[in-house]
Computed example of a mutant assay.
Amino acid sequence: MASLELTGRVALVTGATSGIGAATAALLAQRGARVVVTGRDSARGESVVAAIRARGGRADFVAADLREAHAVRQLARQALDLGGGRVDILVNNAGIYPFAFTEKASETEVDDVYALNMEAPFHLVAELAPGMAERGGGAIVNVSTIAAACEVAGLALYGSSKAAVELMTKAWAAEYGPRGVRVNAVWPGAVRTEGTAGMGEFLDVLAAQAPVGRPGPEEIAEAIAYLASDAASFVQGVLLPVDGGRTAVC
């Protein structure tokens, strides 16, 4: 039976200083991967790395603002250096998700959302997927949202940026899959993290619309770790809902 273990692999997790990203980095390290943690907040990043190391895992932190293309490509190079010339797992988790009605979104906000949510994953895949293909294997997991599929007023900007990521997920599966690189995405539902704290009661309203009826915590990381492992060797180009059943009723 294929294993969930990731011993000997190098993983890069973006947006890993808190929330889903931090939980994913910790779980990948627990399963044996050497993890490159990245985000903008150095203090939080070093805290995530320290916690992983305290549990016997291997991790390094690289500070990066992924709204700039040159910073994205520099991150890819740094991750390769830390990984001894390889990155086997890429988790595109970094994102911003403003809750704002369309007419109130500023030009800067629109640019930032698309730069971080859509363009950063594109550049990272362009930098790292060819190396995975040359080695004959690798896994890319993109973090999307149910807002890309379910109509939610106030989330047009965020949802559309992630809808693009979902199309890229399928296109990358077709592009790199024949060369051994698996590309999939997860669809988190309402998740209570530091980043969603500002949503207040709206988060609970979203969660209540799902059959499970509550926000999700660590389950998202478990799904990502599964898709990154050999246990998912026959899973390619999938958008996996981990949303408490929300997409079943949207």
Rank of each mutant, 00 (worst) to 15 (best):
R192M: 06
A148S: 15
A190D: 06
M1C: 09
V249W: 04
T247S: 15
P217F: 07
A207F: 01
A133G: 11
G137K: 12
A11T: 12
E109L: 14
I20R: 10
V110L: 13
G45T: 02
I89W: 01
E103W: 10
A129P: 01
L75W: 02
A59C: 06
I20G: 12
V62S: 08
P188I: 11
A129I: 00
D81Y: 02
A139N: 07
H123S: 03
A23M: 14
A43D: 09
P217D: 14
L80W: 04
R34V: 05
A232G: 05
T14V: 11
G138C: 00
A164Y: 00
R135Y: 00
L27V: 07
L124E: 01
L4M: 15
V62R: 15
C150I: 15
I146Q: 08
P215E: 06
S106R: 04
I140A: 05
I89Y: 00
R53F: 00
A164D: 02
I224A: 07
Q236S: 15
V238D: 10
R55Q: 14
R246L: 15
P188S: 12
A208T: 01
L157K: 08
P98H: 07
A105P: 01
A33F: 00
V13L: 01
V242T: 09
R44T: 02
A221W: 12
D60G: 13
S160L: 01
D111V: 09
V249Q: 06
V205R: 15
G244P: 15
A59R: 13
Y176H: 08
A207H: 03
Y176W: 12
A248Y: 12
P98K: 10
S3H: 01
A22C: 05
C150M: 14
G245L: 14
G136K: 11
N184I: 14
T102P: 04
F99S: 00
R40G: 14
L227M: 09
P217Q: 11
G200F: 08
A133R: 08
V152D: 10
A50H: 05
A232Q: 03
I220Y: 08
A231Q: 10
E134G: 04
A163V: 10
A185H: 06
G195K: 13
V48H: 00
G213K: 08
C150A: 15
N93R: 03
V49C: 03
I96F: 06
M199Y: 13
V72N: 04
V242P: 00
V72G: 09
V110E: 07
L240S: 12
V181W: 01
